[in-house]
Design a protein around this nucleic acid. Structure first.
Lengths: 135, 135
DNA sequence: CTAGTTGCAAAGAGTTTGCATGGCG
DNA sequence: CGCCATGCAAACTCTTTGCAACTAG
């Protein structure tokens, strides 16, 4: 990721416009209408993910990987990520209760939690109200 | 999964013998030495996962899916799963602090956490002591 | 100019599926 | 004996890689 190119800028701009959405590589190409090769998108997203500009998920249902914009300046090491299993939105959450839980798990259970790689799954308020939650 | 066959029994028995380990389909065939077709293993594991007898993970590094034995009677809905990023072991953890965190997130943040689908990643005590943790 | 980047196509890896054969109940 | 399960190979999907042409710095 040494050069800034037209394609990379276009991809990142498009994802930035939908910070709540996550895309598969196919969706990104189809929906953005960008004329960019698939391989280029994979290479660009890998680079962005390494730089922390996008976040990479592996969808539980076995489909392709999901990528979502994540502003680089926002420190994702200091907060948790809540991901809605219904609408797919990602919530960055600062929460002292979660911090305390993390601390407790490390001190009492001897397990050092990695906030960057941990995503808490569940259902957001909107989806629970809409009855999208199975339970 | 209507019939109980030699192959299915053998696969489940082998996984049951290593409840802390998780396997890719390849590893399971190679290490168990069982003479079972790859497709059969995929079909059996899908069935077991649906029945809750094994848990299915998608490894972050992009490799194949990981399967791990999970006793069916043990309710995985009532506890959290801590997964070590270094050794790969899965820890089933009952913890009131985590329960409180879950409750807080639901009440204050309006997000209903799904324990079954959530896995907390980090480094276990053994791996931290061995210096396997990058930080 | 030089090195990183692109796009295409081919190669890879993991998983699923079709179909004939074999085994459980 | 009927129906499901197995095994093989082919098909599929997602992702990576090789290579020649291209472009940012």
């Amino acid at each position: 990721m040494k050069y800034s190119t037209k394609q990379k800028r276009a991809i990142l701009e498009y994802m930035k416009a939908y910070p709540d959405r996550c895309f598969t590589v196919r969706e990104l190409i189809a929906e953005s209408g960008l004329d960019v090769g698939e391989a280029t998108v994979y290479r660009a997203l890998s680079g962005f993910a390494a730089d922390g500009e996008v976040k990479r998920y592996v969808s539980g249902d076995g489909g392709g990987a999901l990528y979502q914009y994540a502003s680089a300046d926002e420190s994702c090491e200091s907060h948790f990520h809540l991901k809605c299993l219904s609408c797919g939105r990602l919530f960055h959450t600062e929460c002292h209760v979660i911090d305390e839980m993390t601390k407790h798990v490390e001190e009492e259970h001897g397990f050092r939690v990695d906030n960057v790689h941990t995503t808490i799954y569940g259902y957001c308020r909107d989806c629970v109200e809409k009855g999208a939650c199975k339970k």
